[in-house]
Write a protein that binds this DNA or RNA. Sequence first.
DNA 1: ATCTGTCCCTGGACGC
DNA 2: TGCGTCCAGGGACAGA
Length: 290
Amino acid sequence: MPELPEVEVTRRRLLPHVVGRTIRSLQCSPPSYFFLTPPTVLQAKLGGKTIADLRRQGKYLLLHLTDGQRLLLHLGMTGQLFLEGSSSPRLLTLASHPEGGSPARFRPDHHTHLQLHFEGGFPALLFRDMRKFGKVRLIEKGRSDARLDKLGPDALTVTGELLFDASRKRRVAIKSLLLDQSIISGVGNIYADESLFRAGVRPTRVAARVTRRECDALARGLRQVLLRSIETGGSSISDFIGPDGADGGYQNERHVYARRGEPCVHCGAPIARVVVGQRSSHYCPRCQKR
DNA sequence: ATCTGTCCCTGGACGC
DNA sequence: TGCGTCCAGGGACAGA
């Protein structure tokens, strides 16, 4: 699922293909809760506009236009943001993917909810999302957005001190705290599990009982896994692809996430799974302290 | 203020 | 082969 590293990889690689481009037209799927701004409004307000910048805030991407409007994008669970002409097996359903055959070039399907076509014949920007947990919203010039306003500091800047202060008096599991976007933004299930493993802290531990030293280790672990994932192109575990259709590489380096029953890379004990706050969590029962 | 449960969605895995 | 059931989960929201 797209978390900070996947969104950042998308941003960096997309940047040279969108900045300076002028939007010729938009194609949208029918209205649904995917569109916080109705498709007709997007089409009326974005046509002819030029993209000035592409920024990231937590797991959100913001397409800045030269007239001050911003297009807010969230990839949700299964969102894929990529350029026209890309090909990847992940862009096809397993059923329609020929065994062993090389994937055909992607053609927009009914999961492709947004298409930005540019002037000058450059490849269009496509937003596909099978489960529609993603979001699109137009923020008018000078306006703010409640979702963005709520976000805590970026996970790449997180410190042990911040984690320690935020977790005092909190009775939720430390894992839930890491996933709380108002505390720190950008962390999802994969990197929460991976950073907890690095810090030797069990995901179920009550937040208030995590020591200052462990908070330091957590902040350090978080930064390490996030930076390394960005370096390797993100995690392609279920649906994530880069803007050119390429897989990331971090799924091959994860230590605990979705490795239930497999041996811990440090001690060999089988990785365990437990549900924390309705989310599956993976940990080593020997290396991560209760 | 904080916490828990529910909901949105759809493809894939699995059991019969 | 085909059907039904369960699962995955980010984030908004309601209710305790």
